[in-house]
Amino acid sequence: MKKLINAPEDVVTEALHGMAAAHPDLLTVHFDPTYVIRADGVPEGKVALLSGGGSGHEPMHNGFVGRGMLDGACPGEVFTSPTPDQMQAATEALDAGAGVLHIVKNYTGDVMNFEMAAELAEASDVEVQSVVVNDDVAVEDSTYTAGRRGVGGTVLIEKICGAAADKGHSLDEVADLARRCNEEVRSMGMALTSCTVPTAGEPTFDLGEDEMEIGIGIHGEPGRKRMAVESADDIVDRLMTPILEDLPFTEGDDVLLFVNSMGGTPLIEVYLAYRKAAEIAEKHGLRVVRNLVGPYITSLEMAGLSITMLRMDDDLIDLWDAPVHTPALRWGA
């Protein structure tokens, strides 16, 4: 293992100290239990948005804490769900009288820990709603698995719901909006290389020099199939086809197209892929009205891509365009 770290067990904590040092105007990091919250506090009467999950997906979620997106995030160990005590402490710290929305990615550990946190918050009289994001079309058999995973759609939902909360929407309204977006968004990813969890010291899975995994999860979970590497255009086609085949896209729809690097793939390749993804979307009669390109939901140093498409309407476009100021996303503010 060759990594720019000091000690494997200190990676998460030292990175959080770095974030706190780099963005004191945007966020504050609390330790024991560990959580990140916006530096300026949640405005009185605003619904607070809390997400969280294993570390190693930076900038998600800590990098989306600030104004107009998440109010707080709970980072776990690398690829390991955070714990209910962190979530409960963050929930109580964030509640500004309008309740707290938990945005949870559909992984067994995340769902169970957030469930316990919501039970604990109930006991302390904070109103909590939970939304589970599950946009990964790579998981075909959701009856006999833990279900579709939460991936790229999470980033879009956090931005859109953050804007809705800023506009004064109620907890129920923001939760409904998150669920509606989750129904309108689909994602699929692929990996060219594995990644190495610092405390494990070895690659999470083996992938031959000439192989790729189509449908990879953000922790290196296997996808639909392993096959020989193809050209970028063919790979993008392999990701776009299942997204387009799945509900809900039809000709004439407006969409947001999000092409994401898994961490190890450089932007030059991500833009190259975006070019093809946009071409395919337009060939299907979709209008790409907004986009996001870059590393936003990563798997450590894994090389690869994911593509996410969200069907948009005028409301969602307004919410997407609303000002946001976080370490990783910033416009209009």
């Binding site: 390991t80 955070p82 714990t83 209910p84 550990g109």
Partner: peptide, 12 residues
């Protein structure tokens, strides 16, 4: 176990 384990095994 709930507060220090993380993952799925902590809650379980």
């Amino acid at each position: 176990l709930i507060s220090k384990t993380g993952g799925a095994s902590g809650p379980l």
